[in-house]
Amino acid sequence: MTDFLKNISQQPLHVVDASIPLTQYTPISIAASNEELSFDVSSSKEWESYLATFFSKHQKTVAYGGYLETRAIYNRSEHFNKLSAENQRNIHLGIDVWCDAGTAVLAVLDGEVHSFKNNTNYGDYGPTILLKHSIAGQEFYSLYGHLSLASLENLEVGKKVKQGAQIGTLGDSSVNGDYAPHLHFQLILDIEDYNGDYPGVASKKTLDYYKENCPNPNLLLKLPDETNIMNY
């Protein structure tokens, strides 16, 4: 499946505002091992301040990365935090694209709306859309999390969408699970029985399964240097 996804397009596929050139993108690490993250990582406001400084320093407007990154930010929420290290969910299964609230979110490929929901747990996705894709006999799904509430208006299961069409906008910290604005973008092979939701963070105990079921979204996005900032 990895080769299939990689070969769907030879060109990078946009998942946020296509008018933002890829020259405005830069990789970022929010891994627990990143010593630059010396602020209160439980505070969305401090994250926003850190990102503003990061963007200014790099002279970019979009930051991305995080597939299979081990993170400390989830410790703040009982939704992720378990008693044992083995069961603690802190390994990220998608790519995050950090940019301004209100930025257009695009369907990465032709598909249809599988499901949608506002996931309101603290630290959760907030408004979320899942698309179903069927290409050359292969069926898989894409998840778009941390959207605005308006993104869920007038949606219907089964609604057809075209590659590059706007399906929503990024939410702010008041609705997106209390994070600095960003898109969580994830690929899923077997959606199981989930609707409007799917685990975006794995534990060490479950990682082998989720690595297979949630391949690297950068197979489609083809953003440069993304693998150089990931912790395996």
Rank of each mutant, 00 (worst) to 15 (best):
F4M: 14
A18E: 07
A72W: 07
V161P: 00
N231A: 13
L147D: 02
E48V: 01
V108S: 04
F4A: 13
S142P: 13
V113Y: 02
A101C: 01
F116M: 13
E86G: 04
K132Y: 07
Y67D: 04
R76F: 02
P215N: 13
K159G: 13
Y210G: 01
N119V: 03
D178T: 10
Q166P: 05
I135R: 09
N231T: 15
Y64V: 14
T61D: 15
T169I: 04
A72P: 11
T61M: 11
L106A: 01
E226V: 01
L221E: 04
T103I: 03
L109Y: 11
D40G: 01
M1K: 14
A150N: 11
K57M: 11
C214D: 08
A32D: 10
D17S: 02
I167G: 01
L219K: 14
V113G: 01
H79M: 04
S203C: 06
E35W: 06
K211M: 14
H58K: 15
V41G: 00
K117S: 14
E48C: 03
S44Y: 12
P224H: 08
S33Q: 09
D110H: 08
E192H: 03
S84H: 08
L219Q: 06
D193N: 15
T2F: 07
L221P: 06
V41F: 14
A107E: 06
N34K: 13
V105C: 04
C99N: 02
A107M: 06
L13M: 10
G94W: 14
C99M: 04
N87C: 03
L220R: 01
H14K: 02
P217D: 05
L147Q: 02
D40P: 00
E48S: 13
P27F: 07
N34Y: 14
I229P: 01
R89Y: 10
N87I: 03
G94H: 10
P21D: 07
L93T: 14
D172F: 00
E192S: 08
L223A: 12
I91A: 03
L219T: 05
Y144P: 03
F185E: 06
E69H: 00
S115H: 07
T61F: 03
Y122D: 15
I8A: 02
E156T: 13
L219D: 05
Y232G: 15
Y64F: 05
S173N: 05
F116E: 13
A85M: 08
G177N: 10
S134L: 12
L187N: 02
S77V: 03
L13P: 00
I73A: 05
D100R: 14
L189R: 07
S38A: 15
I28M: 12
V62S: 08
L37S: 09
G158L: 02
I188Y: 06
S142Q: 09
A165E: 12
D225K: 09
N213Q: 15
L51T: 12
L68V: 14
K132L: 04
P27I: 13
E156M: 05
T2K: 07
K160G: 07
L219C: 05
E36V: 06
A107C: 05
N81L: 15
D197Q: 00
R76M: 06
R76P: 00
S173Y: 09
A180Q: 08
A202S: 13
P27L: 12
S9L: 03
I73W: 04
L223V: 12
Q138M: 11
D3E: 09
I95T: 15
V201G: 12
